[in-house]
Design a protein around this nucleic acid. Sequence first.
DNA 1: GTCTATAATTTGATAGAC
DNA 2: GTCTATCAAATTATAGAC
Lengths: 210, 210
Amino acid sequence: MPTRERILREASFLFARKGYGATSTREIGEAVGIRQPSLFHHFASKAEIMMELLAHSLGRPTDVAEALAAADGPATGRLHRYLVFDALHIVGSPYDLGGLNDDDVMELPEFREWHALRARLRGAREEMVAQGIRDGEFIDVGVEFAAMALTNVIISATQVYSGRLPADPGLAMRIAVFAMRGLVIDPAALDDVAAWDGRDAPESAEAPTR
Amino acid sequence: MPTRERILREASFLFARKGYGATSTREIGEAVGIRQPSLFHHFASKAEIMMELLAHSLGRPTDVAEALAAADGPATGRLHRYLVFDALHIVGSPYDLGGLNDDDVMELPEFREWHALRARLRGAREEMVAQGIRDGEFIDVGVEFAAMALTNVIISATQVYSGRLPADPGLAMRIAVFAMRGLVIDPAALDDVAAWDGRDAPESAEAPTR
DNA sequence: GTCTATAATTTGATAGAC
DNA sequence: GTCTATCAAATTATAGAC
């Protein structure tokens, strides 16, 4: 495997475990098996490593969320489909995407340009929640809170079931149902949904080009 | 207000926003309005500041969770009561307890002694979930996952509703209901619960001795 | 109780040999 | 593409004056 790719993977593991600011370039080099200055042959700076990971963490999910927010049909089904995609995207990634775009990273000035993309992803998620409230499918506990809570439940699942989710897309769908049961007025609506989009969800889990 | 207390507060804000490892003692001193070396008149090290915050973050919640895990009555009511306490504890604190006991901090060797307390808190939460599953009140999505997901939903709420929760304990109870609706087999059981423990929940939100 | 001065270490990044 | 050597800046913490 190319050194550049190994750097991305090891860096993502360290960033997820210790945080971006607390991870030194020497640690990354050691994990990869090269000396610290050799990193800078592949990336111009430590921040550039993070930016490539941010692109992987935010890119496809934003596209999928915006497409589903603009699609037709009940919000319940579209939101469920996004949550299943999100779980499989995180777990199917060769990188550890846990807490990658948290505030502690995004507040640093060198990542200011990524605020817009993260805002688009959040906006699309909140749009689906707002649609469900407007159409009488969801209770109104606050759009921002509901969207954040749903995301955090999915992240919890990817952490606890890290090894099991990709091999079991059905588990991902049950977890998305669990996450949404608090939001949905009629829990029975989720039974249909889980059967409906079970077909295309697994293919959403993709690995990055290597 | 004593300088020591101001240090704890400003440090907690910075730790929550940037992470422990990425927060320098110079920043803490600057936020307090003193020079960096003056911090060490009040605390022996940066880690000791964090440990005092950890004690506040984990101490009472662990006592409450263990007491409720050992108490009688339906797990639904006891777990709901804990979640309301947790939300009011976090939001009522003068410190920012968000992500204080995350892995990135707890994995550092200087905080190894705190693993036991965090494990007790997690154990008590998971015990309540396990009781509910055993007694047929909760669906079984995995004890560890369910307990973590519930906690993360409460933390989401404290972040989004940071200013509004302490003034509105009823909101905290509705959020706890929202968090638990995915877990409970019969959502109607939560209507009774919310009315039952509404009396004593608000007094759970305490400030530390100053 | 806060300050200045400073020690000892670690940080991200560069230069240049091979 | 990786290495050694090194730099400038930032880190936590200490010593001692006031």
